[in-house]
Design a protein around this nucleic acid. Structure first.
Length: 154
DNA sequence: GCCAACGTTGGC
DNA sequence: GCCAACGTTGGC
């Protein structure tokens, strides 16, 4: 049973455009247990939304696909690196990541404001007050609705 | 095991 | 730049 996900990224750090150029990328640097656990549930072929956060108009901008299931996040092993965490070792990794691949952009980015305005999306994790989870599950309905919104102008 | 302090996220 | 919300840390 394939599932749907939402991947948050600050475009200044890593943008959907960069993913288009790279083709695929390890989703490294996640240091939150809930987000990690979500990644550990992913299967290859699962689809997701790529969401740009911390910008003037936050929005879901594209579609991605999981192309490799969870494996140890090597950035946790990089001494001196931004994501180094000595509690995680190759023998006993604490942090995991998946690989995600570029699929296609949404014809029209679906802004956070537009999602908030959509009654059928009430209940979506992203819209909950104070939520900060960088990797979130989407229900099939939420996936379908956002994709549909992305096919037409607001 | 509790919980206050702290750091980070992210919309506004 | 502000600050509410929340996860994590660490003293006890």
């Amino acid at each position: 049973m394939s599932r749907y996900w939402l991947f948050k990224s600050e475009p200044d750090a890593y943008s959907f455009e960069q993913l288009r150029i790279d083709g695929s990328t390890p989703w490294s640097g996640v240091r939150n247990f809930q987000a990690r656990n979500n990644m550990m549930e992913m299967q290859t072929g699962d689809l997701g939304l790529f969401y740009h956060s911390s910008i003037p108009v936050p929005a879901a901008v594209g579609i991605v696909k999981v192309v490799r299931t969870a494996y140890p996040d090597f950035t946790a092993f990089e001494r001196g690196g931004e994501y180094y965490d000595p509690r995680s070792t190759p023998e006993k990794p604490m942090w995991m990541m998946v690989d995600v691949a570029y699929v296609e952009p949404l014809a029209y980015p679906v802004t956070l404001a537009r999602m908030r305005d959509e009654p059928r999306l009430v209940g979506m994790a992203l819209l909950k007050r104070g939520q900060r989870l960088s990797v979130q599950p989407l229900t099939p309905q939420e996936w379908k609705i956002v994709r549909e919104l992305g096919t037409r102008e607001a």
